[in-house]
């Protein structure tokens, strides 16, 4: 409990987390608002709760950057050494950081998701935006969980690379290039795609959604249903975090 307090003080006593949180929310909610305001009237029937979450990746990336920085700035300014002096077994301090940072990312994810959906509903009251089915609830509220585990992923990369620029570049290249380009490989590309963590994580949100032009892409033939996808995505992120913690414990600080 005390270590959670420590990480909370650390996170909120500098300005960059605040900026990241504001940026994540404004980007995602702002884009959805513009989208909602410009929907053509003949497409209005397709404007469902799932479609309001099309921009969640923007906020996700920003919160991943915040999570990585929460680790790498500690290395950059050697405050990680003060942390390890205070908690020489190291692991509890890193777990506390994971809980606080990923928890915050999850919270921001929920805020952006609900904010995007809520504003869309206000702007287009005639669109079919009410949440009725379990699917529709998952389409909106599931976003926070993806944020949470993506943040764990980002913390892990930070722990392994220990350097802001390097870690963030790796994440961006992976997220925007590898996960998008690997499926383009002939014959095996589709099979690879079904196991790419962020694609599977996205499947948790969009699975069972009716596909239409404005909505988010739904990939057919995924190996898991929505909750299975979440478990797979979470396992990858947590596994990477365990590796990160093990390295941090073993290496000289």
């Amino acid at each position: 409990m005390t270590l959670l307090t420590v990480e909370r003080i650390k996170l909120f006593s500098t300005r960059s987390p605040w900026w990241c949180m504001i940026l994540a929310t404004v980007l995602t909610v702002g884009l959805t608002t513009i989208f909602a305001a410009t929907v053509k009237s003949q497409d209005l029937a397709d404007f469902d709760p799932g479609t309001t979450q099309f921009a969640y990746n923007f906020g996700l990336v920003v919160m991943m950057v915040m999570s990585t920085l929460a680790v790498t700035t500690e290395y950059r300014f050697s405050t990680i050494r003060s942390t390890f002096l205070a908690v020489p077994t190291r692991t509890p301090a890193l777990l506390a950081k994971g809980v606080v940072v990923a928890g915050l990312a999850g919270l921001v994810g929920e805020v952006t998701a609900v904010g995007s959906w809520g504003l869309a509903k206000v702007i287009q009251p005639d669109a079919p935006l009410s949440l009725n089915t379990a699917n529709e609830y998952r389409n909106v509220f599931g976003v926070g969980l993806v944020y949470l585990f993506a943040s764990v992923f980002a913390l892990a990369v930070g722990l392994i690379v220990r350097q802001s620029a390097g870690a963030i570049v790796i994440e961006l290249v992976y997220l925007f290039l590898l996960e998008n380009l690997l499926p383009a490989i002939p014959r095996i590309g589709d099979h690879i795609q079904h196991w790419l963590p962020f694609t599977v994580g996205d499947n948790f949100i969009v699975a069972n959604q009716t596909h239409h032009a404005d909505g988010p892409p739904v990939i057919e033939g995924m190996p898991f249903g929505p909750w299975g996808s979440l478990v797979y995505f979470a396992a990858i992120c947590l596994g990477l975090f365990v590796i990160g913690c093990a390295l941090a414990k073993r290496r000289d600080a």
């Binding site: 003080i9 006593s13 500098t14 300014f77 003060s82 908690v87």
Partner: peptide, 26 residues
């Protein structure tokens, strides 16, 4: 221990810096 005086986040106040370290050991 004082190994390096620069082991401080530059954008954190002196008080916040000491506060988190203090909190870590109750």
């Amino acid at each position: 221990a004082l190994l390096d005086a620069k082991w401080v986040h530059p954008n954190r106040s002196a008080r916040s810096h000491l506060r988190w370290i203090a909190a870590s050991n109750r």
